[in-house]
Amino acid sequence: MYSDLVLEHFSNPRNVGSIPDADGVGLIGSSICGDMIKIFIKVKDNRIGDIRFQTFGCGAAIATSSMITEMVKGKTMEEARGVTNEAVAEALGGLPPGKMHCSNLAADAMNKALDDYEGKGPRKSRKPLIDKGFGVRGGREMPSEEMKRPPER
């Protein structure tokens, strides 16, 4: 169901990790599936110098995270904003139907990181950011309470 390129990025994701002294951090949780992506950027001369991501999500979420970090690396803020989820999906040779929201997740996390850097969002916020962007069933506060507790059994 996934293209070879999706599987390739999924198997060998680029830019995995975190940046402790990041200039911008974007965290987004999908209101559709509950998966989440966190993107860290380090800015140099108004360009994205370094970028890392962490993803709790499906194959498409991991592959799009990997692809978007590749696509925006070295770009200016404005250029980076121009990288849409469709562009990421296209660069990956397409995504299966029903998986477009996963590419949304990556693009939205990227924009949150840029917002954070540019001070539009709650800068370096300690509070997790909430996604209200998809227009589907509303956003969910991340992380949810349950996530912190060990499962009850």
């Binding site: 990790g17 975190s18 989440m36 993803t55 996530m147």
Partner: peptide
């Protein structure tokens, strides 16, 4: 290793 939940 790539999960934000583990990092947290």
């Amino acid at each position: 290793a790539m999960s934000p939940l583990v990092a947290a």
